[in-house]
Simulated assay, not measured.
Amino acid sequence: MKQNEPGSTTEFDDFGRDVTTKKLAAGSVVLASTLVLTACGNDGDDDFSTASPVETVQSAEDAEHSVSDIQAAVDIFVGALDDLGIDHSEPERRQVGGSGAKAVFDIDVNGFDSGINVFPDADALETWQGLSDSFGGIHVAKDLAVLSLNTDEGIGDSAEIAPQIAEHVGGVARGV
C-alpha cells in the first residue's frame, strides 16, 4: 500500500483504489460485533483466567487516578441502584474486549445480565453509544461511564428503570 502524500490519512491499494473507507467500515463492524457480544452481559460461564494479560505502561500516578475514576463511576451506579431499591449483584470486573472501554464490569440488575462500562474519553463513549443505539440498547450515561441494561428478556424492566436511574445520578437514559 502506498500513501497519497506525506502526512495524509488516505491510503491506496496497489491498484490506486482508496481503501481508507473500507478500513473504517471493517473496524466499525468489528467494534459493533464486540458490542453485541459484550454490552448486554454474559451468562457467567466464561472463564477469563486463561486470557493473556494486556500490559500497558503508565505512571503510578496515572494508574491511581484511573482506578479511582473507575471505582467512582461504579460507585455512582451501584449507589443509585441501592438508593432506588433496585435489586443487583456486586459488579465483577472482566476483560474489556473490543468495547473501547477502559474498564468493564458485569452486574445483574433485577435478575438480568447488565454491565457497567467506563470509557477513557468522550470519543470512545460516543462511539459505543452510537453502536448501542443502533442495536436497540438501553443504557444510562453519566460522565464517561454507562450502565448498560439488559435488552433481551429484561427489556421491559430496563426501559422502566433507566429513566429513574438517570434522574438519580444526573445522567441521561438512552434507548427508552
Rank of each mutant, 00 (worst) to 15 (best):
V30F: 04
N42M: 13
V96L: 11
D133C: 06
S59F: 06
V109C: 02
G100P: 00
L31V: 11
T21L: 15
D87R: 11
A51M: 14
A39T: 05
D123A: 15
D69H: 11
L131T: 00
A60P: 05
H65D: 12
G41R: 00
P91W: 02
G79M: 06
G98H: 01
G100L: 02
A103H: 01
V74C: 02
G115L: 02
H65M: 10
A25C: 06
V30K: 07
A72G: 15
L35H: 04
A103M: 04
D133H: 11
G41S: 05
P53Q: 12
E90M: 12
P53M: 11
V104M: 09
D108M: 14
V54A: 12
P91S: 07
D62A: 10
D87Q: 14
V96K: 06
A25Y: 04
D46C: 14
S68C: 05
V19A: 03
H65L: 15
E55L: 13
P120M: 10
S134M: 12
G79E: 05
G27T: 06
N110Q: 15
V29W: 04
G97H: 01
W128A: 02
Q58M: 14
D113M: 09
A26E: 04
D46R: 15
T20C: 03
L84Q: 03
V78I: 13
K102Y: 11
P53G: 12
A80S: 09
G115R: 00
D69A: 09
A80N: 01
S52Q: 14
